[in-house]
Design a protein around this nucleic acid. Structure first.
Length: 573
RNA sequence: GCGCCCGUAGCUCAAUUGGAUAGAGCGUUAGCCUCCGGAGCUAAAGGUUACAGGUUCGAUUCCUGUCGGGCGCACCA
């Protein structure tokens, strides 16, 4: 990997130039410029250090350029440009050796040790076990699973986890809804609960219940618990199965109920009390609304989140003695730390973004490191069909599910579309476009490049030709399209590092589209399989390297890299 | 009213933790197959980065304000 050697070389050159950056080597900004004229790597250290060094940036840059140890490294030249940028250019030897190196690295090309084995926990989807998964869950699943793979790729120990809210009011309501549906079937009068779950899936579920047992439960005063448990296990299993079909699995499905059972919830409350951030009162000491009639509900237990950046204090335990969702949630994050994770990343839906400050405040109140928890919001998804928004009503239980989406456009395509956009941005998902198996669909564009290369490699193999394991001859390296492709492939490790560090999975598909385009240009400029065996083998090595990088990138996304693609039967023309 | 997200080509979106001349796809227009997959390639056109200030060597990026879109503001999750 180029990044560490470049960093070390720069630190050494800066020291020679009289500037010591020993303690902040990793903060040196290194970038791959988008403008090819600016070299293969660039840094602005001379500009950022000019002020403290009290020297003009260009003077620093000149000194660094002179002292930079080029010998034995990937670079052949370093130039000073503009106001004081340092631009590094790969030597031909480095580029020539790259295809063979990618071949030998195989699926590990792009990986690094940047994360030094730090344990990270990514919590995502974590949908309530009250119904099918929706499209935002689908988006979060694509983003979260990719994030786990990205973190692993840069050397973290990363795990994905699904937090199941299988306790509390929502699941009780689910039980009551199911009981009502069963009663309805059995011809027993029973009111459907207000705000109950309307979805048709509960009717199906009610039909599948063991008749006698359900009737008995219905007759008992505490019978909804039976229906709740029945519904819960069924729904969780559906969710797990759908996610599996989608290609997303978790290291652990963590049950909220286990926190109650183990006493972790009570323990967390005591830990907070010990830190003197809890009080009992009828209304909050900070942030209360004067005309809140709810104040009459009696004394609740409050957490002083307002001391840690929240606008008001929050209820941990209701006046009736039942904890709000917040307390077990704090217990859950406390548990993550106790399990040895040094860093947690949560991916939440758009309806939870108002909860970020209170969660962070709660963890601060607990004494957690300020950067322990990072929360990403997987923004809203608007489905478009025929150019019109698809109408959905969560209340009535009418919405497009993850399962519908997979049936409609396929898991690969759905994931690719979700990952194309930055997580925090609203997303318009054009179902018609995603369904189209043609050139308008970027998922197919990338997969097609992979299949096309695989096809060329097969064609070559039939003629007894295989990729060369030798350095690329300079005659090939001088072809602009070949050189551009190899340079693009060389940036993959840095792309992976950047996407992981910045928590921006969307950089991967963006890169893959560019890489696929670079390959297609190479393909058009250079016939790969010719009568010239040596040349053919060299070009096969370049093509094979491109295939490997595209495959590695698609693997990060959890999208398949097909060896061949059947053209779907053209619609009547 | 308060908080958060967003505003970039006709449309959907990028722009590498403040970098150099803001880029792709679709759509439009004009081209490219005796040859390895044309699901491809080449070129043209398309921009006051919503608006107004500020910070600095440098702002699509950071800060303030205005306008517009979305979401959230429970002793629900």
């Amino acid at each position: 990997m180029v990044w560490p050697t470049l960093t070390r070389g720069l630190a050494e050159a800066l020291r020679a130039a009289g500037i010591d950056v020993a303690d902040r080597v990793e903060r040196i900004e290194l970038q791959i410029p988008r403008e090819p004229d600016h070299g293969d790597w660039t840094t602005n250290v001379a500009l950022t250090l000019a002020r403290e060094a009290k020297r003009p940036p260009r003077a620093i840059a000149e000194a660094v350029a002179k002292a930079f140890p080029l010998a034995g490294g990937p670079f052949a030249a370093v130039e000073v440009a503009g106001p004081g940028f340092l631009n590094f250019r790969y030597g031909d030897a480095f580029l020539a050796a790259l295809p063979a190196r990618i071949a030998s690295d195989g699926t590990t090309f792009g990986r690094s040790e940047f994360g030094r084995g730090t344990a990270c926990l990514v919590e995502y989807v974590s949908a309530n076990p009250t119904g099918p998964l929706n499209v935002v869950n689908a988006r979060a699943a694509a983003v979260g699973s990719t994030l786990v793979r990205l973190l692993e790729a840069i050397g973290h120990r990363a795990e994905g986890e699904f937090y199941v809210n299988d306790a509390g009011r929502q699941v009780d309501l689910l039980g009551a809804s199911l009981a009502a549906r069963f009663a309805e079937r059995a011809g027993i009068a029973r009111a459907f609960p207000e705000d109950g779950y309307q979805g048709a899936y509960l009717r199906d579920l009610a039909a599948a219940l063991p008749e006698a047992e359900a009737r008995a439960a219905l007759a008992r005063p505490d019978g909804t618990a039976w229906f709740r448990d029945a519904a819960l296990e069924r729904v969780i299993e559906w969710q797990r199965r759908d996610l599996e079909a989608y290609g997303v699995t978790f290291a652990r499905w963590f049950r909220e109920s286990s926190l109650h059972a183990s006493g972790a919830v009570d323990e967390t409350l005591r830990a907070l009390e010990a830190r003197d951030v809890v009080y009992r009162a009828a209304r909050p000491e900070v942030g209360g609304d004067e005309d809140e009639p709810e104040a009459a509900q009696g004394e609740a237990t409050w957490l002083r989140t307002s001391r840690f950046g929240d606008e008001k204090d929050r209820v941990l335990v209701r006046a009736n003695g039942v904890p709000t969702y917040l307390l077990p949630d704090i217990a859950y994050h406390r548990d993550k730390r106790a399990r040895g994770f040094r860093h947690g990343i949560d991916i939440w839906g758009p309806d939870h973004h108002g909860h970020i400050t209170r969660m962070q405040a709660a963890l601060a109140a607990l004494g957690a490191e300020p950067d322990f928890l990072e929360i990403l919001i997987a923004q809203q998804v608007n489905l478009l069909s025929g150019g019109q928004p698809v109408k959905m009503s969560k209340r009535a239980g009418e919405f497009i599910t993850l399962r519908d989406l997979m049936d409609d456009v396929g898991a690969d395509c759905a994931k690719f579309f979700f990952l194309m956009r930055s997580t925090s941005a609203h997303l318009d998902f054009d179902l018609d476009l995603a369904k189209r198996q043609n050139d308008e669909n970027p998922a197919f564009y990338v997969q097609y490049a992979h299949a096309r290369i695989a096809s060329v490699l097969r064609y070559a193999a039939e003629r007894g030709l295989a990729a060369s394991g030798e350095a690329t001859p300079s005659a090939e390296l001088e072809i602009p399209e070949a050189r551009a492709l190899i340079r693009k492939l060389a940036t993959f490790p840095e792309l992976v590092r950047g996407a992981a560090v910045m928590r921006e999975p969307h950089r991967v598909p963006t890169y893959l589209v560019e890489t696929a385009a670079a390959f297609h240009r190479f393909y058009h400029a250079c016939r790969v399989v010719t009568d010239d065996a040596a040349r053919s083998r060299a070009r096969l090595a370049i093509a094979a390297a491109a295939r490997q990088v595209i495959a590695n990138g698609l693997a990060l996304m959890g999208v398949s890299a097909p060896e061949r693609m059947e053209r779907a039967a053209e619609a009547a023309t």
